[in-house]
């Protein structure tokens, strides 16, 4: 028995090491390549040992005007997340407390609808209003991703908060809205943080909406990456530096908010 136990432990450790290596090695490779000159990238003998250079990053940040794209990405993700929370948190509360299942279903359908089917009508309407290329359209389009996520996570969260707290607050003289504002909302901060962080990440990572609805000045980072992909050749060093610039902020946020991200991604998974 004890020998079987220890052989299982050995197997488990080995398997976990393989999992970690497979998941992290590609990211490490991207990071390494972003510090290599293009000559070193083409030289397989310099896979791990090379003289690191910051040229790719100076090129990305200076020549390719990435400072602006970083701000674009940040502004669009921040605004769409904030607006989604403002609309989504009260809506989720009403849907949870009044069991508005049909309304909830309509909002959650947004997770199923292919984004392209919205892009065509949006493009139709917004180009007639001469709004394509502006921040407003980008923020609204990213809310399509963020709002259903907020409603989904917050509905689950409100379902889990006991009704008794609000009821006793109302007995003590608070109005229903007062009870929501002074009792439920402060208790929901972890849920709101979860929803906000995930909405921000998904908005930051979104590519397709900005691909169609942004212009040269408002494009977000995932679209701007394509500046390094030419028809004839690819500037690999610059491309990997650009890819690192997009992913690194989100990974840093993820490391510090791991608990919230995991609880948000698995929300509703165990209710069956």
């Amino acid at each position: 028995m004890s020998r079987r136990r220890s052989s299982f432990t050995t197997f488990r450790v080995a398997a976990l090491v393989v999992v970690v290596v497979v998941l992290l090695a590609p990211l490490v490779w991207m990071l390494l390549a972003s510090f290599k000159s293009n000559v070193d990238i083409y030289d397989s003998s310099k896979a791990v040992f090379f003289s690191p250079t910051l040229d790719n990053y100076t090129k990305v940040l200076a020549q390719a005007n990435y400072g602006r794209f970083i701000l674009n990405s940040f502004w669009v993700a921040f605004a769409s997340t904030t607006l989604s929370l403002l609309l989504g948190v009260p809506a989720a509360y009403a849907m949870s407390r009044f069991t508005m299942n049909r309304s909830a279903l309509v909002v959650l359908m947004a997770r199923v609808i292919p984004g392209v089917s919205l892009l065509v009508p949006w493009y139709y309407v917004f180009s007639n209003l001469r709004m394509v290329g502006g921040y407003t359209v980008l923020i609204l389009s990213h809310m399509f991703v963020a709002l259903p996520l907020v409603v989904y996570i917050m509905m689950g969260y409100f379902d889990g908060l006991p009704l008794e707290l609000e009821e006793s607050a109302m007995v003590d003289g608070l109005t229903p809205i007062g009870a929501f504002r002074l009792i439920t909302l402060p208790l929901s901060v972890p849920g709101i943080a979860t929803a906000g962080i995930l909405a921000f990440i998904f908005s930051w990572n979104n590519f397709m909406f900005a691909l169609v609805l942004s212009d040269a000045h408002t494009k977000t980072l995932p679209v701007a990456i394509f500046n390094f992909v030419g028809y004839a050749s690819i500037d690999w060093g610059g491309l990997m530096a650009a890819a690192t610039v997009v992913t690194l902020p989100i990974m840093v946020i993820a490391l510090f908010t791991q608990k919230y991200i995991v609880s948000g991604l698995t929300a509703g998974a165990t209710k069956g």
Binding site: V19, N205, L221, P222, I234, L239, I250, M251, A254
Partner: peptide
């Protein structure tokens, strides 16, 4: 804790950047 971090990183990485990364690899 460390294994959980490794599991989280691919998940939050920007898909376009992930595509470019694998394109090089």
């Amino acid at each position: 804790k460390w294994v959980r971090v490794a599991i989280l990183l691919p998940l939050v990485a920007t898909p376009v950047a992930v595509g470019m990364m694998w394109r090089l690899i």
